[in-house]
Structure formats: structure tokens, C-alpha cells
Computed example of a mutant assay.
Amino acid sequence: MDNNLSLSGVRVVDFTHVISGPFCTMMLAHMGADVVKVERPDVGDSLRNIPGYEGREGHPDYFNSVNNTKRSVALDLKNPDHHAAVVDLIRNADVVVENFKPGTADRIGLGYEAMKKVNLKLIYCSISGFGQTGPYAQRPAIDPIIQAVSGVMSVTGEQDGPPMMAGYPLTDTVAGMYGAFAVVTALLKARESGVGEHLDVSMQGAMLYVLGCRMAETLQAGIVTERVGNQNPFRVPSEVFLSKDKRPTILHCSNNKRWEALCRALEVPEWAENPKYDTMQKRQEHRQELHAMVAARFAERDQADWMPRFDDEDTTCIHVHDYQEALDHEQVRYRSQLTSRDHPLDGEVWTVGVPLMDPAYNEAVTRPPTLGENTANVLQDWLGWDETKSKDMLKKQNG
């Protein structure tokens, strides 16, 4: 582990599973924290056990994507000896992150109120769907549920179609990211005060937080925002257009300068000169007409013929990339954001690493752990157990 990273020396006990919590703790690990993932013996994080991707059957690639750069200990929280060892880990930790159903941590004797008695400076982060308290606290909540209740689905999709989910676990990752941010800020406070705190992060609340900038229309004007597909409610033209070879391109004109540049790139300067379209408000009034004009013009040539012209005019447009194209993008390669590590069970495991140019962060990325592979060395590192005592624990676990 690189001792020069931002969170080097910070110890995190990780009780999380699936996406929201593991994403949070992975972010902390990428910043240098020593993250110890506590998993159920023989079972582990449920994400280990979902079917593999086609051609990767038997390999937990989804789990691996959010659990690199951590250590795994397999301890049974129902076993008194194991439970005591976990409490000792927390005694020596700076941070606990959990995403149990609200009330579970308290029920198993590992909630904040109990743990702050053994570690006053402990930062304890709980991530859940709706928060630890309130009328919805005990409701089951996964990403699709929070996408629905947060309102983001209502503004995603075509105007005449049904609400649509984002194509990835948006609310899980947003909650995890906010959790990591909250942990780091709480650590700064605790270093000054010597006293920790309980951070109650809800997926619902985190989504409302990031949606706030676009909810101003509803908050301030009482207008319920409608779906507009790939269009932008405030900017015209803004849409995905298909070229002659059916390749998708997103075009977006945020002001008159961009509109004039687009007209030059499309070789129709007369559009920019037409007083009917010379302000954004007028272009909004003629939204459908303008989009039809741009679509027809763009469909006359292949995308490869248009792109040099758009680049010359510095227009805000780009090909709509699929995941493979996004990973292969030359800017991603330049910034060396992708890392690969050899795994004893899963072969070469690729990771989307830290979006910082400092190479130290991605050089410090380590492969995802196998279930419980670090139990003995964590007990020795954190608790000062000798090899015999830690091996005895493993024998009891396996016996």
C-alpha cells in the first residue's frame, strides 16, 4: 500500500455488500485507506454469487469491479469469538461503513451507539435506501426503486414513451460517492475534535441532492418537468442525430456562437442568418422544425465526413460511444485510467481506476480479494495477534 496517498493510514471496516456500500469503500481504498471487508464464511458478498457474464461463467466480475484494493476477512458475526474479533477491529479502526437493513447493525451488537463506546473517534457511515429513520426506513430499496422514487425516471425517456431507468446502477453509485465524501469530511472534523459521528446516508436523499440543480423548475416555479428524450429543455438544437451510415452523434448548441458554428459546419450558413432562429428563445419556439432540419441535413453524409467539419468549427458534438468504444477512447488511454491485475481464480482482472492524473493512485490498485484470503494477516496487522492465534481462529472457522 502506498503510504503517500491521501488516505494512507486510515483504517476502514467494511460491512457492505452489492453496489452502494462497496462503491463507497472502494473510493476510500483508491485514496489509500486500508479497507477490510468483513464477509460471511463460505458465502461472502452476495455479488460474488450472481451468474457470470457470457464467456466469463464462474467468474464474479461484477463483484470484482467494486471490490478491488480491499482485503477480505471471513468472520461469522453469529460466532461469539468472531464477533469479538470484529469488535476489536472496530476498536482499531477510523471508519465503519455498513449498508445493512436499518436496525440490523444494532440487533447484532455492531451499531453506532455500541461501537462509539469502544471507539470514541469512530466515523460510522450507514448507507440505506431511505435512511435509518422515517416512514420508509424499513422498506426494501434497490437501485430501480430509488430511480423511481427520486424522480429521475420521470425525466428519462422519450416524451411519448414510458419513464425509463438509466442504464447503470445510478442511485447506488451516487449514494456510495456521497458516502465516501461524507466520510472524508467527517474524518477531518474528528481529527480536530477527537470525536466521531454517525453518518446516515440514504440513496433517496443522495439522488435528490444531485438532482437539485434540475429540480429548481419544480421547487421555484411549481412546474413538473417532462421527459424530452435526448433533447435539452433549455437549448436548441440539442439531440442525437443519425448520419447516413446510421452512426449516432450528440449535438448541443448552448448559445448563439455555438449555433453559428454548427450552421457553418453543416454548410448552411443561411440558417444562422435567418432572423427566425437568431436567439435561443426563437430556436426554442421552433424546436421541432429545427431538429427536423438538422436531422435531414446530417443524414446526407456519413459521420466520418461530418466530424472533421465539426472539429474545425469547435462545435459541441461527439459520437455516442458504446462501452467498448468508451474504454478504447484515446483520452482514456492517455490518462492511463484502466488497470489490470492478475487474479488467482479469475485471470486478468481489469479495473476502471481513479480519474486523477497522478499515476500513484492507479499504481496502488490491487486485485480483488478471494473470500477470506486476508483473515489471518488482518488479525495480525490490526490486532497484533501472533500466527498461532490467527491460525487457531481459522481452524475453528473451518472446523
Rank of each mutant, 00 (worst) to 15 (best):
E260F: 06
E260P: 01
A261R: 13
L262Y: 02
C263P: 07
C263D: 01
C263S: 04
C263T: 03
R264W: 02
R264A: 12
L266Y: 05
L266V: 05
V268F: 07
V268R: 12
P269V: 03
P269E: 02
E273M: 14
N274W: 07
N274A: 03
N274Y: 05
P275M: 05
P275S: 09
D278K: 13
M280N: 14
M280P: 09
Q281H: 04
K282F: 00
K282M: 02
Q284W: 00
Q284L: 15
E285A: 14
H286V: 04
H286R: 12
R287M: 11
H291W: 01
A292I: 01
M293L: 15
V294P: 09
V294H: 09
V294F: 06
A296W: 01
A296Q: 14
F298W: 08
A299G: 06
E300F: 04
E300Q: 12
R301W: 02
R301M: 12
D302G: 14
D302V: 10
D302C: 11
D302E: 11
Q303M: 12
Q303A: 12
Q303G: 09
A304M: 08
A304Q: 10
A304L: 10
D305E: 13
W306K: 11
W306C: 11
M307R: 13
P308W: 08
F310T: 12
F310V: 10
D312T: 14
E313S: 07
E313M: 14
D314Y: 10
T316P: 00
C317M: 13
C317G: 10
H319R: 09
H319C: 06
H321L: 15
D322I: 07
Y323R: 10
Q324C: 10
L327S: 03
H329G: 06
H329F: 11
E330L: 07
Q331Y: 11
Q331E: 06
V332D: 06
R335G: 00
D342V: 06
H343P: 05
H343A: 10
P344I: 05
P344F: 03
L345A: 09
D346S: 14
G347D: 11
G347V: 08
G347S: 10
E348Q: 15
W350H: 12
T351G: 01
V352I: 15
P355Y: 06
P355N: 08
L356M: 14
L356W: 13
L356E: 14
A360N: 11
Y361W: 09
Y361C: 08
A364P: 04
R367L: 04
R367C: 06
P368D: 00
P368F: 08
P368I: 08
P369V: 04
